[in-house]
Design a protein around this nucleic acid. Structure first.
Lengths: 150, 150
DNA sequence: GAGATTCATTTGTCTAAACAACATTTGTAT
DNA sequence: ATACAAATGTTGTTTAGACAAATGAATCTC
């Protein structure tokens, strides 16, 4: 369905306006669907994102600024986000011995286990969602999106 | 900058995974920039969105469910969002005389004036942001995004 | 026309986000 | 050494979001 229909917009929008709206609306839907997938596991998409970043460290601990830099949506309060994960025993935090201002955050066994349960569900969503386009179209789309962010 | 660089992801992602991340990251940046533009006017992007919907009614009042249906990000609490706009005297709400369950919400003169101040700023952002791509690329991108949402 | 049902919105509550202020540790220049 | 600035996180506060329950008005059924 095109944007004008979807949002019941009567006037004709410029391609530029449409792009901005399209990006926001499309990403919102994706976020909603991801949240739905994660809900049974009692974890928000932000928390899921942090867990995946921690796993990507491959055992090496991460500090808060590293996590923040890699998060898809930079949010201000990474401390409390990590607090939640610790409450759920999905990760651990110790004060960095070399520099006591820093903290070292690592994913726990529980966290890894949870991710391994969620992974296939998310992947299957990604594939079915993106499956509406061919591999070539996807590559092209990714390139254009990269250009937009430049 | 491509996604892997941006998020410091070492492993190679599938085009499908990349698309999902790209959509989320790109839309987030757009939202941040829009919020930045709106900040001096002391209005959130949700509130701005509602105001534009009301203006689109061309004098015809809108009720809450109409607004909700047209919002780019469906959020649950349109009542309180409209409350904020009323506090700022940007719109008005009366009980619908024909059906007293409904409310009739209209944009005020103030609201129209505010929009007319903000419009050129948003438009100039839209044009400069989307200006990285040609008109043809934009049209193609819009089509693909529509297909993704189908 | 009394009571159930549906509709449209509001309210309550709990959790998360934005933003600023604060605290602690480290680095640097004198 | 000492004082000052920068780096790194944490906490506090205010505002917004999610979701469910509640309210009040209209409609439907018998």
């Amino acid at each position: 369905m095109n944007l004008e229909e979807l949002l019941k917009i009567e006037s004709k929008l410029s391609a530029q306006k449409k792009l901005i709206l399209n990006l926001i609306v499309t990403a919102n839907r994706v976020n909603e669907e991801l949240a739905e997938i994660l809900k049974p596991f009692d974890i928000s998409s932000q928390q899921f994102n942090v867990l995946r970043i921690l796993r990507g460290q491959k055992g090496k601990p991460a500090n808060l600024s590293t996590i923040q830099e890699r998060m898809v949506n930079k949010m201000s309060n990474t401390t409390r986000l990590v607090d939640k994960l610790i409450d759920k025993k999905l990760c651990e935090r110790i004060v960095c011995p070399a520099n006591r201002r820093k903290v070292e955050i690592t994913i726990s066994e529980n966290g890894l286990k949870l991710l391994s349960e969620i992974d296939p569900l998310v992947e299957s969503f990604e594939n079915s969602y993106a499956g509406k386009l061919s591999e070539e179209e996807l590559n092209n789309l990714n390139i254009k999106l990269n250009e937009l962010r430049s």
